[in-house]
Design a protein around this nucleic acid. Structure first.
Lengths: 338, 338
DNA sequence: GCGGGGTATCGAACCGGTTCGAGCAAGGAG
DNA sequence: CTCCTTGCTCGAACCGGTTCGATACCCCGC
């Protein structure tokens, strides 16, 4: 079922059918009606590959995904969902690309073979060759996250430094003097993940400002690691009274560790961090945290990308978000301080 | 940069370049080397749309996604990740399609416009028009889940009936006589979601066999609903001593409800259900549950789909999985029974 | 020295759309 | 009545690959 068949049955030429569909040239009411009729009867839809070949646009955007194999976090899930949804509103499909260990193969498929009109990158590193590469190529893309030099790029990011600082100040205001920082896995820190680095920076800086005694930890992205990490924290310094975490996946494990050490949250120990809202609410007591607005970020990324696709010469734009801390139930004054 | 340009620079015809790349006809060593050289120098990659148009295959599979707007569960995330990963191993890309309220629009894009070679469907309903529609069309697809009449289809499913029964027997063996069932939201049950229906069936049947006193509940897919649901359970029958849940997203809320009612798990109250392993381990105490092997299911679905794409006339195949219950820490004998 | 078989290559057609330039008919102005 | 617009439609070329049939060449046997 192709455009030629439609044309034949409607008694017109292929180009007339094309114009009737696109509206790029006037077509008489009578023929338009006839064509519509035939199309509706046969349930015709133009072939996407042929269209893409002819006009150079695929109506597809690539979502470059965190490496498979590692665990996905709830935040990433929210990103994906919101990107897909926002893209659909603009009539774009979303092609997933696992930018795995050899990011190259899948990456080359997307760009080299022209499968997508533009790309959204997740899990940005401070020095990110993917971002640099795309910038060099002038390929339309938007990053969810910032590299070390975000000035001339398109991105939507979270101010991890400010958020970690806010968490520290929140705990310090409650009287905590000895706190710990639970970061993403060491391997990600070493790879230069921006959230891990900027978060750590913010934590360290704010702790110094407030004169707090701190220890920082890397923790695997799963519950067992979280539990182990908490045990280390209390072993290293039993006088610790609070922690800040960026590690959503470890949260359940951290809580379990506290429960098993007999520390009651928030009476004996305060927990806070940077976590997507719906996941902060699944733990008991509910986590006081800077809620990552994942849906909003996904939507903004798509908005920026579509804007960039529509007018290729717009100067770079970006959004830096710093959501406030939502007070829930996991933090409180240090015992004896209130 | 197209195949004609490569041909020109290598001093051969376009078809020779094509044959050198595909290997479908012999090409002399000398020309092959020359062509390789030019291609490597220019970083040429054949245009995916043109190739798809010419040979009728897009090397893309569609993943038809649960309706956006509702919450995604961790299990769904695991499916998506494993499907993408498995597809990449076969050199297929994955196109996401939110089969939203008007499933039609996005669905038509995928199939009608020939964007994908095949599709994997998630969130199957007992009477699922998508499945029927694809079967009528003979379109290669694999469902993750079973309709009411799965005999002649391609799918990989979970034996929800058996799993729910196993949960009931587990609780009954521990001496529980009054238990509750926490199902997915009522709206999903009404829509005919297979997990909700088959799970409920299994629960009801097994409870009758063992002569248990039961109540069944629908619960929203979030922590707040879980908490509210648990409060209702204890209000409706304070003598309830255990529950079975299919609702992963509500789990945190159920635990919170129990904690606030002063019921200790597993001493005063046992919790079990059907939940993906990594999420069962984030709660404290860790959930004794039938672990949904989401990664395996995603991989199997891709395997089946690729098999079907490679030889279109194979008779339908399927995999019905029934993982055993993993004993963790959330169930125990009824107080006074042990 | 000539016919036969195999190998390497080429040109042309095709996949299914879009787009450009040209043609044709009807209608209004001069 | 002629000329020029204007509105609609058509045919052909093009996007960038793949594939088929034909051709040119070489080596071999007789």
């Amino acid at each position: 079922m192709n455009i030629g068949e439609i044309a034949r049955r409607a008694g017109v030429s292929r180009s007339t059918v094309s114009y009737a569909l696109s509206g790029k040239r006037p077509v008489s009411d009578a023929t338009r009606r006839k064509i519509r009729e035939v199309i509706d009867e046969l349930g015709y839809r133009p072939n996407a590959s042929a269209r893409a070949l002819a006009n150079g646009r695929t109506s597809t955007i690539g979502l470059v995904f965190p490496p498979a194999g590692t665990h996905y976090t709830g935040m990433q899930l929210d990103f994906i969902g919101s990107v897909v949804e926002a893209a659909a509103a603009y009539d774009y499909d979303v092609l997933l690309s696992p930018s795995g260990v050899d990011s190259d193969r899948s990456f080359q498929r997307l760009l080299g073979e022209r499968r997508v009109d533009g790309a959204i990158l997740m899990e940005i590193r401070l020095a990110d060759d993917r971002v640099d590469h795309l910038a060099d190529l002038g390929f339309p893309s938007v990053a969810i996250g910032r590299t070390a030099h975000p000035e001339r790029g398109w991105w939507v990011g979270l101010d991890h430094t400010a958020l970690a600082q806010a968490c520290v100040h929140h705990l310090a205001d409650l009287g905590h003097r000895r706190i710990a920082f639970v970061n993403r896995p060491e391997q990600l820190l070493r790879a230069g993940y921006e959230s891990a680095h900027r978060g750590l920076d913010g934590f360290t800086k704010a702790a110094a400002e407030r004169g707090l005694t701190v220890r920082t930890y890397n923790c695997g992205d799963d519950a067992a690691s979280g539990q182990a990490c908490l045990e280390r924290i209390l072993r290293d310094d039993p006088a610790t009274t609070g922690l800040v975490t960026l590690n959503e996946a470890a949260l359940g494990g951290l809580y379990r560790g506290l429960a098993q050490a007999g520390r009651h949250v928030p009476r004996d120990f305060s927990v806070t961090g940077v976590v997507a809202g719906r996941w902060a609410e699944t733990v008991t007591p509910q986590l006081t945290a800077a809620d990552v607005p994942a849906e909003q970020m996904g939507r903004l990324a798509v908005d920026l990308l579509v804007e960039r696709l529509d007018n290729p010469d717009t100067p770079p734009r970006n959004h830096l978000l710093a959501p406030p801390i939502s007070l829930r139930a996991s933090t409180g004054p240090v015992f004896g301080t209130a």
